[in-house]
Design a binder for these strands. Structure first.
Length: 110
DNA sequence: TTTATGGCTGTCA
DNA sequence: ATGACAGCCATAA
């Protein structure tokens, strides 16, 4: 088996994230079929080449905020890209997952 | 091979 | 509301 499949899974899900919406690492992992691999999603994105068109900026942590990685410069770009897509940020730099959080098509409700 | 770490999450104080 | 602790598992050395 190759771990490449895992990456492809994650990438496929990230690609499915619609514009103007954001998803959490756990969400991506769960949808990709990796229940406890939220962290690996972060690794996959870290290993993601800049030439990829993956909307990695739409992937944030469960708190609805951007993960403060070692390089804070990218995190600024991430916020900028999200704002450009119509996502609103809180004064603390957080996004309302209740409004911009990615909702699955079959998961409808009340 | 083992060890250490981490772009996380969820619960408890 | 924020802060600290433990659990999970792939990647890197």
């Amino acid at each position: 088996m190759s771990g490449t499949e895992t990456y492809k899974r994650i990438y496929a899900v990230v690609k499915k994230v619609p514009r103007g919406q954001v998803a959490t690492y756990g969400q991506i992992a769960a949808i990709a079929g990796l229940p406890r691999r939220a962290r690996q999603v972060g690794y996959a994105l870290h290993a993601l080449p800049a030439q990829s068109k993956l909307p990695w900026h739409r992937v944030i942590n469960a708190r609805g905020e951007i993960s403060p990685r070692t390089w804070s410069e990218n995190h600024l770009l991430q916020r900028f890209l999200l704002e450009d897509e119509g996502v609103e940020f809180d004064a603390s730099g957080r996004v309302s997952l209740a409004r911009f959080g990615w909702r699955l098509p079959f998961r409808c409700s009340p």
